[in-house]
């Protein structure tokens, strides 16, 4: 066991933390979604990497092959990717609507607008 042999985990971890950091630190709604995408992608790696066996091949029975990679993580992650795409699409759609409503996609400006309206006419909806 050495650090280098776990390099896939290091990449996973780096992407995970980087993605999460972008989500938290950025005020731009699109950039937040990008961060979220990176965060999700790191999990895809987490699943896929251990499924690969060195020297293993696709799980198709054939002469001369004894070692196969695990196909199940690929299937799972295919599902997760679909979910991720749907989330991203919905998130982007929301951002479009938010821009139509507020004319900005910066979080602090939006909150400022909401706050201003609440203090002007606190009870009107």
């Amino acid at each position: 066991m050495n650090l280098a042999s776990h390099f896939s985990y290091w990449i996973t971890l780096f992407l995970m933390v980087a993605g999460l950091f972008i989500v938290i630190a950025r005020g731009n709604l699109i950039k937040k979604l990008v961060g979220l995408g990176i965060f999700q992608t790191s999990v895809y790696l987490l699943y896929i990497a251990p499924g690969k066996l060195i020297g293993g091949t696709a799980p198709i029975l054939a002469e001369g092959f004894k070692v196969y990679s695990n196909p199940l993580p690929h299937v799972l992650i295919l599902t997760a990717i679909v979910v991720g795409v749907a989330t991203l699409a919905l998130g982007l759609a929301l951002v479009v609507r938010i821009r139509e409503a507020y004319d900005t996609i910066e979080e602090d400006e939006i909150l400022l607008q909401d706050h201003a309206r609440e203090t002007e006419a606190p009870f009107e909806r």
Partner: peptide, 19 residues
């Protein structure tokens, strides 16, 4: 219109939770 922002924030938090 604040519903949009509420939904967006829930989307971010919810996706992090799900992940």
């Amino acid at each position: 219109r604040r519903a949009l922002m509420a939904s967006y924030q829930y989307l971010i938090m919810g996706t992090i939770g799900a992940t």
